[in-house]
Design a protein around this nucleic acid. Structure first.
Lengths: 225, 225, 225, 225
DNA sequence: TATGAATGAGTGTTCATTCAT
DNA sequence: AATGAATGAACACTCATTCAT
């Protein structure tokens, strides 16, 4: 057998395997997706580069090629997570709603997004365990978030002007509170279910919690009750 | 030589040696303390048994002697953390206060305890990353917490009877909310400070947040505003 | 409470526990028995001092007190095993039997002893893995065994004189052969059962093997067939 | 540069480096060879992965890469040992010999193979200490050995047909006996030399034993004596 | 671009043995 | 005589990363 034939056959074999060699975008996207799953399931320290390589179907070396290393890969994952939730939020067009409606929509969105994307919560937890080291180095994030704060402040201002919201509520405090009452319930689902001796993830309880949160934020904001 | 003298001498020897060989209680306590620090700083997966041994001054082998292994050590740390916060809570004697006062005290206690004992937050986060595996195996915890829930329910009931609290607020929802609004702010201090572009741990902001939380819970509970 | 009373009470407690403190013979015997089991099950390297201490009920320190260390304990175990089989053999009174009868008895005894005391086989295997290091240091053994060889030689000589045994068979070769055909079958029971795809330890097969061995040795020794 | 030249150059590089990085086959072969030596010298429990890595010249990590772990490595070693002896046996072409000649050849082969490859004996001993755990999981072995049994049975049958062998001798019993009388002598060389107070490995004694074994098996099989 | 072999520092864990009482 | 705490060296195994092709 000649060398040429050998090589041709080798390439056929590769193509036949199917996991898309020579397709940079697909490779790096699949690595990122696998990384999200792994970092979410195990945390930063518990995550294994080998596991990510295996799950993504890509060669381990590719992770270093595209992302640099474990730390940079985590940064990329985190960045994506923070941008994804913002992108979803923006689709709500909160600035086009009435203030009462907008707040309800934000509370409900937060709850449902956390519920459907629990990896966001885990990644944020991991990042705080590492003292925000990765997020601090991300410039994209630091440009994106002030805009969000302005949006919420806008809603409050319109509500105050309309006479339905109390004055003096800070957008930061409000926002932290809206996140907190959903985040804590969901991120501590396991210890919570043990401590309170009930399945916090039961679908009826989940709806109840959303309702409770909506009322909580309304009572906090509204001028009359 | 009398038995009394023997014992006295033995104790002197122990004290003279400092961190004490042949003092099981002290050894295991120092391991536990070092474990709290390490698990808190690095999470479960990131924590190193070697580091715990080094910090505790004990021989690494002693960790296995007294606790069995990394997993069991984490369980012990977690158990202690959950019992400690309950012990501190009980000292408040909430059941002897007026309901309004008791709720305020609980909110303030929660905030200040989390602030002074941030390891509690980190440990809870870690445990939830591991799906509550360790807490589930702890019977002490599962006996302790129902009592706490009854206490809070008692406060609510007394407030409702007195006509100051609204009816229909569940102790579980209230409790989760009280924890959430403190927990989230503090556990996400790093990402929060980046996202909101301000130092969330500034002492004035901390006091502001406590005040905000108190008002939040009052508005949630009180019949009139 | 006085010191005297304290001490008295402590001793009561010990006695109540029952595993015989202050009874040197019982302690060392129970250690030896536990050691036989452990060394047999795991081999020398695989055996654990902790396991022996646990099984014997004695304190780990006692093993060092009575036997010196792991190596010396193994020597003691081995010595006992070699003396036990000799003691059992002596009870047969082979020198009082007719030569044909004596040989049959020796073959059957060897087979049944190995079958009932498989630890002997394992210990011998272990000792050979260690190149006879422990046995070489035992003087008791080296005094005991020449006598045994003389016994077998005596049987052969009587058989030759009687005209029933062939001349020129060495006691050593005969003895090794008698041991070999039982030993190999039993010590390799596991690999043998796999290789030959049948349960070598089935009771019928065991009896068959004994019969085969008896015939084998007879054909080897007897003048006529 | 042509493919042929590239390949040639690559091979040169490999050869130049000696024990060869980037040569999977050579690496795994050298690990296996080192493992045979270590497991033979120390038994399974006594063998050290570090020692195998050191001796093989490979990185310790490679052992896990190629074989999985200590247990799987032992299985590989054992499998190889069992296949090697069969391969050597097959070269004898026993089925082309006269039955008397074939049996003699098998006895002599067994003796000389055990003598030249003592690691086979030790490995089999180790495996039996572990109750055949590794061998049982090997399908190659379980397919290979029935064929060997048929071969021996064929020899017996031909001998019986020819009128030179007695009828009713089972291939399994014969085979076990042939192995036993060589195996026991050699595997227990150390304790044997002590017990019988002579060097069993002396070259004259070795030849004597082979002669004795040949006669033993002949007397067992032959119709006349 | 892509691959799989290779690495060295380290990871939790276990060991036989000794110390202090 | 007896105990249980203490030790340090070693154990099997794993890690993120780099090399050679």
């Amino acid at each position: 057998m000649t060398a040429t034939r050998t090589k041709a056959k080798a390439q056929d074999t590769k193509r036949a395997r199917g996991s898309g060699p020579r397709d940079p975008e697909r490779t790096s996207a699949s690595i990122l997706a696998a990384a999200v799953t792994e970092f979410t399931a195990k945390g930063y320290a518990g995550a294994r580069i080998d596991a990510i390589a295996l799950r993504s179907g890509a060669n381990k070396r590719m992770i270093y090629h595209y992302f640099g290393g474990k730390e940079d890969l985590f940064t990329a994952v985190l960045e994506e997570a923070y941008l994804d939730i913002r992108a979803a939020e923006r689709k709500l067009d909160l600035d086009k709603m009435e203030p009462e409606e907008a707040i309800d929509a934000l509370v409900e969105f937060t709850w449902r997004y956390y519920l459907k994307n629990p990896e966001f919560l885990t990644l944020v937890n991991s990042e705080n365990l590492h003292k925000g080291r990765h997020l601090r180095s991300s410039k994209v994030i630091q440009k994106e978030y002030p805009r969000f704060l302005e949006l919420v402040q806008g809603i409050i201002d319109r509500g105050v002007a309309k006479g339905v919201f109390r004055d003096g509520i800070s957008a930061v405090q409000l926002n932290i509170t809206i996140a907190a009452i959903s985040y804590y319930y969901l991120t501590n689902r396991y210890t919570g279910s043990i401590i309170y001796d009930r399945d916090l993830m039961d679908s009826r309880r989940l709806e109840e919690r959303l309702e409770f949160n909506l009322q909580n934020i309304r009572r906090l904001l509204y001028t009359c009750c």
